[in-house]
Amino acid sequence: MTENSQDARPLLEVRALTCERSERLLFRDLEFSLDSGQVLQVRGGNGSGKTTLMRIVCGLNDSFEGELYWRGETLGERWEAFHANLLYIGHRVAVNHVLTPLENLRWSCRLHDPADDAGIRAALAEMDLAGYEDSPCYSLSAGQQQRVSLARLSLSSAELWILDEPFTTLDVDGVALLENLVARHAREGGAVLITTHHKLVLPHLRTLTLGVAR
């Protein structure tokens, strides 16, 4: 994806984004852009609008003013191309409790990228979940469920990852695993938009702090 000819335009561009929630201004005239190979960490205190920003960029929240561009064109025009290239992992991990990790991932992969069972097993093994593929998810810990969700990262071919607090329930090994995945994705030409309070150590890391424009 690095040989892309439209290199002049950033992958994702946000211009003059303003969002009010319950009559409280979350951010005004927010501007940033994200290009291939970059990781943008969104920081800010609790309630500063990090999750809202993530949901706005995904297209889940439309109560905002401003413009979003995907490869130089407005998101409205490139809706399908954008969503085919987006992987979002939110607070809620989209793991059904009665299904096994394998069954959960079979479905979520079908919504985006097809993956065969061997691929899913390999991704789960990468997340240190080998042996848990066929246990129901209610028997897994919160951190393990988070890992099931994060296994989708290595199964996806999406260019843009949007990760909302992906480190919260992970243990030390899990944090290292995820940091490696993010670094690898950026090296391979992908882009990552991530919210976390965790101190990330990555090359090309940029940060955006919310909640200062009050």
């Binding site: 297209g59 889940l60 969503h83 987006l86 979002y88 939110g90 989209a94 059904n96 919504l111 985006h112």
Partner: peptide
């Protein structure tokens, strides 16, 4: 559990 968000983003 958030599966609905994934459904909408498919």
């Amino acid at each position: 559990d958030g599966s609905l968000e994934q459904l909408l983003l498919s």
